[in-house]
Amino acid sequence: MRVTLTVNGKPYSDDLEPRTLLAHYLRDTLNLTGTHVGCDTSNCGACTILMDGKAVKSCTILAVQADGSEITTIEGMANGGELHPIQQAFKENHGLQCGFCTPGMVMTAADILQNNPNPTEQEVRHGLEGNFCRCTGYHNIVKSVLHASELIK
C-alpha cells in the first residue's frame, strides 16, 4: 500500500504492508532510529513523535494512517549543529542518562510547551505522564522542560 508523507520537512513515498507501524516505518525504512520502541501497550512513550504538530505514540499508529501527514521526529528538532532549545535544556539540566527515553521525552515536551508556554512543575509532571524514564527519577527531566520554557521565550 502506498504511503506518502512528509518527515522532518522531506517528502517520502513508500509501498508498505498495511500492518507496518509508523514507528517501524521510521526506523526500518527511513533509518530514523532516534524514535525508539520500549513497550507493546502504548505506555512508555519512547516512540513519541509529532504528527501534524501533535505528540503521538508512533507504535500505536499504522504507517498507512499517517498517509498525508507531516511528521517530526527527534532527528528533525536540531537546526544543523544547533540544538533545539528543548534539547539544549535537557543537556544543561542532565535530563537524560541512558538516552533511550530521551527522544520521546523531548517530543512530548515540545507538545507540552506548545500548548502551555509557561507550565508549572505540576503541569510538566502531568504532561509527562505518558513517558517512562527508568534512569533519572524524572527530576532533571522536569527541570529540563521548565528550563526549556525559559529558553523558548
Partner: peptide, 19 residues
C-alpha cells in the same frame, strides 16, 4: 561538567543494538 554523550542521544543518533 555537561555530558559529552548527550548530543548524540538528544539528536536521535545513539547507536542502540536494535538500530
Amino acid at each position: 561538567i555537561k555530558r559529552r554523550e548527550d548530543n548524540r542521544f538528544l539528536t536521535g543518533k545513539g547507536r542502540y543494538t536494535d538500530d
